[in-house]
Design a binder for these strands. Structure first.
Lengths: 152, 152
DNA sequence: TATAGAATTGACGTAAACGTAAAAGGCGCA
DNA sequence: TGCGCCTTTTACGTTTACGTCAATTCTATA
């Protein structure tokens, strides 16, 4: 029992007999999306991914790839994995997914608000810090200027 | 043994410096600076504060207040407590503190860079999220528009 | 004196997202 | 057939800044 990577290019030793099923193992998956093996297993443990198995070996389908892309997008915009899961769990391939979309929109609005608040805090911190830095530079200048002209 | 209660500023059991020492207990200190008791004890545990003791009761001097203000400022601009401590540990009331100021400036520059980077990431996330939201709204519209007019 | 309000020192819990062994099973290949 | 690489499961460790009891003591006040 062994299948694995692509069905087209025979760059690999193993070839799938199945048609079009582009299955990859965890190593390739990780490399492809720039995550670690641990991360993929962790996501699975959290119910975010659900790869097939060949014996005990995980085999990721293009469905898993789509889901991983969504996870990474969610992570990028600051959603927790819990949120991501909650949204993905509502996905129904046979329906219109109106509920899912509404939930996503709702969560997105809240997340957007959080992000804007964070940005405000950071802007605040930046100006505060800049101010302090000016003061410190001033103090340092007063400690070296009275001596002579200028140098450092 | 009891002092406090802010009226009798006279000398009591302990005196190492001089009078006029406006000592406050942890409760008042916490209220004054908007932190919890736990926080004050935690900062002490981390070596950031060093209140006097009346028996086992902590008594905060104006020195502690000054230090706490610095801690809170540092926290606001995103320094870790470790950083704050490192900078404060260099304070020498008898010297020019040039070293301390230089370290503070150095750390500040790095922190400023971090903050700016964070802001860039957040801006990125905001626009990405906004984009996704538009798409989702679009999808929702397509699910309700084809039927009739609109509502929701 | 009884009760409520401060204060003390532990010490475990929390959140988020993995990192990092450890021990073991398979597989291709020279 | 031994080596090396990939994979698996299990499970404790990390980071930061406290939160949240718990048990106890001290004190002020009605």
């Amino acid at each position: 029992m062994k299948l694995i990577s692509a069905g087209e290019t025979a760059a690999n030793t193993n070839m799938s007999i199945e048609a079009g099923e582009d299955l990859v193992r965890i190593g390739e998956m990780a490399k492809k999306y720039g995550v670690t093996l641990r991360t993929l297993r962790f996501y699975e443990d959290k119910g975010l991914l659900n790869p097939q198995r060949d014996g005990s070996t995980r085999l990721y389908t293009r469905r898993d790839k789509a889901r991983l892309k969504l996870i990474l997008l969610g992570r990028k915009v600051g959603f927790s994995l819990r949120d991501v899961k909650q949204m993905m769990d509502l996905y129904d391939p046979t329906g219109s997914n109106t509920k899912q979309l509404k939930l996503a929109l709702d969560k997105s609005e809240k997340q957007l608000a959080r992000l804007q608040k964070q940005r405000a805090l950071i802007d605040d911190a930046i100006s505060e810090l800049s101010g302090s830095m000016s003061a410190v530079r001033q103090m340092l200048a007063e400690r070296s200027a009275p001596q002579a002209s200028a140098a450092s």
